[in-house]
Computed example of a mutant assay.
Amino acid sequence: MNIKQAAEMFDLTVEAIRYYERVGVIPPVKRDKNGYRVFTKRDLNWIFLAKSLRNAGLSIESLIEFASLSQLEGDERLAQKDILKEQLNELDEKITEMTKVRELLQYKIETYDDHIAKFRTGNLSDDEIEELWKMKHFKKKTDMEEE
């Protein structure tokens, strides 16, 4: 497979793939006798992994380290797993936070009309409204542990 096909497959630009290879986000891709890149399944896996990890928030520097470790032998290569574990933990934290924000948005949508109606009729003042940050669904984990 050539670079244009690989770029189309993963919805990337040819320039992005060249950049990934140049800085070491993906290992070097073999070339044919004319100097054109020839992508193997292994190379395509690397592109897919790099794109996925970037979308999840992994830095270019971490991706470079991850790719560099793949070219080592022995136990040093096991550090790749640590990078993956760390990224998984960070992603789990983001998902937890995003879930809380989703619940907050859902709550605000569900109660919006009622709150607006109460404000308009004077049945709810600024001093009487709920304190969102104190509601159990939206508290930080550390706040709940202190109680």
Rank of each mutant, 00 (worst) to 15 (best):
M1I: 10
M1K: 11
N2L: 13
I3V: 14
K4A: 13
A6P: 07
M9F: 09
F10L: 12
F10Y: 15
D11M: 12
L12E: 05
T13S: 15
T13L: 08
V14P: 03
E15Y: 08
E15K: 14
E15G: 05
A16V: 06
A16R: 09
I17R: 07
R18A: 08
R18Q: 12
Y19Q: 06
Y19E: 05
Y20S: 08
E21I: 06
R22C: 01
P27T: 12
P27K: 11
P27H: 03
P27F: 00
V29I: 15
V29R: 09
V29G: 09
V29Q: 07
K30E: 15
D32C: 05
D32W: 06
D32E: 08
K33T: 11
N34A: 14
G35L: 05
Y36M: 10
R37L: 07
R37F: 07
F39Q: 08
K41G: 13
R42M: 06
D43F: 02
L44H: 01
W46H: 12
W46M: 03
I47R: 10
A50C: 10
K51L: 04
S52N: 09
S52T: 15
S52L: 13
R54D: 02
R54I: 04
N55R: 12
N55Q: 14
L58T: 11
S59V: 04
I60K: 07
E61D: 14
E61Y: 01
S62E: 14
L63P: 02
E65W: 01
S68R: 15
L69S: 04
S70F: 05
E73H: 04
E73Q: 11
G74N: 06
D75G: 02
E76P: 00
R77K: 14
A79M: 06
K81M: 12
K81W: 05
I83F: 07
I83L: 15
I83Y: 11
L84W: 01
L84T: 02
K85G: 00
E86Q: 13
Q87A: 03
L88G: 00
L88R: 11
N89T: 12
N89V: 12
N89A: 14
E90N: 12
D92R: 08
E93F: 02
E93Y: 02
K94L: 03
K94Y: 04
K94M: 06
I95M: 06
I95D: 01
T96P: 00
E97D: 11
E97T: 08
M98L: 15
M98S: 10
T99Y: 04
K100Y: 04
V101A: 10
R102V: 01
E103R: 14
E103S: 13
L104T: 07
L104A: 13
Q106H: 11
Y107Q: 04
K108C: 06
I109P: 01
E110G: 07
Y112D: 09
Y112V: 03
D114Y: 08
D114C: 02
H115D: 14
I116P: 00
I116A: 09
A117F: 04
A117D: 11
K118H: 10
N123R: 13
N123S: 11
L124P: 08
L124K: 09
D127Y: 03
E128L: 12
I129H: 02
I129E: 13
I129L: 08
E130D: 04
E130Q: 01
E130S: 02
L132D: 09
W133K: 13
K140P: 01
K141R: 13
K141M: 08
T142E: 15
D143G: 00
E146W: 01
E146Q: 10
